[in-house]
């Protein structure tokens, strides 16, 4: 967790531009370089805050201006109109699923939201494991506002499962937690489980 100054400058993937107790928005360090949907990210501050990426968007840096279609491939555009890429930015939004204290990651909302301009990093495998060792993170997803809950569950569970080297009993355990959380909605459960294991 203790990153050096050099690491911070080279490994961060975004910077927070909007923050609240339950969600934060970051601007990606590179255009189209946002972390994947459903990946686990963290911010470093007094208390590290952990989030799950649920939305990625790329748009003009000017709120009142939209990009215009040129009818060229990206390669051609970069050669003929390189300046337009400087006028675009990629942002990603993450739902907060926990924070870290001296006992490690806790699956509880942080006492304070992450600070604006904090850097955002991808979580390590051990952090992912700690955050997903029970099905509680699924509850954060299901209870969140305007989240694409089913798809976010699929993507995040796949990441958590991959962090455990595709351990089947883990997947079954998470499936059981999910089954309870969605109140035995059999159709939904079977659809989610099928898509996770595809």
């Amino acid at each position: 967790m203790a990153l050096t100054q050099l690491d911070i400058s080279t490994e961060y993937i975004g910077e927070i531009v909007e923050s609240s107790t339950s969600q934060f928005t970051s601007e990606s360090r590179e255009l189209n370089g946002a972390p994947p949907f459903g990946s686990f990210v963290k911010t470093l501050g007094a208390l590290p805050v952990y989030g799950l990426v649920f939305n990625v968007c790329t748009h003009s840096i000017e709120p009142n201006r939209r990009a215009t279609a040129y009818g060229l491939t990206e390669q051609e555009l970069r050669e003929e109109q390189p300046q337009i890429f400087e006028l675009l930015k990629t942002e990603f939004e993450a739902v907060i699923i926990g924070y870290g204290d001296d006992r490690g990651p806790q699956q509880v909302l942080p006492p304070q939201p992450p600070g604006i301009h904090s850097f955002v990093f991808p979580c390590t495998e051990s952090e992912i494991k700690a955050l997903t060792n029970s099905g509680d993170f699924l509850r954060s997803i299901l209870c969140g506002n305007r989240l694409p809950a089913d798809d976010l569950i699929i993507a995040s569970v796949r990441n958590a499962w991959a962090a455990r080297a595709s351990d089947m009993p883990y997947l079954v355990g998470i499936g059981k937690d999910l089954c309870r959380l969605i109140r035995d909605d059999y159709d939904r459960l079977s659809s989610i489980m099928r898509r996770i294991s595809q």
Binding site: M168, L171, G175, K176, L178, C179, L189, R194, S197
Partner: peptide, 13 residues
């Protein structure tokens, strides 16, 4: 063939 769902349902639903 859906063994995963079998296992998930077993003991839960």
């Amino acid at each position: 063939s859906d063994q995963l769902l079998h296992s998930v349902l077993n003991g839960a639903s």
